[in-house]
């Protein structure tokens, strides 16, 4: 799973998708996850990092992570072609 290459994310969490002109706002934890995804980190790596850093249970994070990915897909921010 890869974040679409063209997508720019600012430090303030502003996301602009030049392919369709949509803009989004992301919270800091969301930015962290996207940045790790950009570095090709696996779900396991990301989970490990987050669980070490934040007070969150494994199950809760897993649920939230896949919910988040689902929304990113919904907004076409994840390059699904590369997966195939």
């Amino acid at each position: 799973m890869k974040i679409n290459k063209n997508i720019a994310i600012s430090d303030t969490g502003f996301v602009f998708n030049p392919l369709n002109g949509e803009s989004y706002s992301i919270n800091p934890i969301g930015i962290e996850i996207i940045n790790m995804m950009k570095e090709d980190k696996s779900f396991e790596d990301i989970t490990h990092t987050m669980l070490t850093k934040y007070t969150v249970e494994d199950a809760t994070f897993e649920k939230d992570y896949f919910d988040f990915i689902g929304i990113l897909k919904h907004h076409n921010l994840i390059d699904t072609n590369e997966q195939a």
Binding site: Y24, S25, I26, N27, G30, T52, T55, T60
Partner: peptide, 14 residues
Amino acid sequence: EKLRYERPVIKKLE
């Protein structure tokens, strides 16, 4: 000490 967790969110600006 661990930081307070908040679930990741993305919101479309409209």
